[in-house]
Each structure stands twice: as structure tokens, then as C-alpha cells.
């Protein structure tokens, strides 16, 4: 499964970055690679079964403990 995920991401990276490099769009290329790396990390961690912190829990913590708000 891990190899399948890696192969998919290499495919996406190769497909999209080819035209960016050809047109010398370095800014777009750097942003594309950075965002793709973030996405790849998120998907890979889940494939490996590593628990990612829940966004919902984060929002709950922020609203209840930082803003001191929230409905009962």
C-alpha cells in the first residue's frame, strides 16, 4: 500500500511539474512541491496507521479553552 501511495505521488508530481519546469515557472513549482509534500505526509501517515491530531478536537480546545466560549 505504501509503495502504491508513493507511486501515485511520483506520478502526480511528474505529470504536473513537467510543464512548470518547461515554462520556467519556479515560484509555482516550489509552491506545488511544498503543498504536495504536505499532502503526501498527511496521506502517508494515515497509510502507516499513525494517528493525526483531529481538527475538530483542535477547534473545540481553541473555542473552549482559549476563547472561553461554546454552547453546553
Amino acid at each position: 500500500m505504501i509503495f502504491f501511495v508513493i507511486a501515485i505521488f511520483i506520478g502526480i508530481g511528474f505529470f504536473e511539474s513537467r510543464s512548470l519546469i518547461k515554462n520556467k515557472c519556479w515560484g509555482e513549482f516550489a509552491t506545488f512541491i511544498s503543498l504536495l509534500t504536505v499532502g503526501f505526509t498527511l496521506i502517508l501517515l494515515q497509510t502507516l496507521g499513525i494517528k493525526i491530531p483531529s481538527v475538530g478536537e483542535g477547534i473545540k480546545f481553541f473555542v473552549e479553552n482559549v476563547m472561553h466560549l461554546g454552547y453546553k
Binding site: E28, G39, I43
Partner: peptide, 24 residues
């Protein structure tokens, strides 16, 4: 940047990556 189009797929992957762990 000159175009938003190269960012569409990576942003989509980030959204897919976040959607399952977002809520229990």
C-alpha cells in the same frame, strides 16, 4: 504566482488527507 491551476491538485490532496482524521 502567475496561475492558480498547478495548486489545485496538491490542495485537493491536503483536503483528502485532512478529511478522515478531522472528526472521530
Amino acid at each position: 504566482l502567475k496561475s492558480y491551476k498547478p495548486l489545485v491538485i496538491p490542495v485537493g490532496i491536503i483536503i483528502v488527507g485532512l478529511v478522515v482524521p478531522a472528526f472521530e
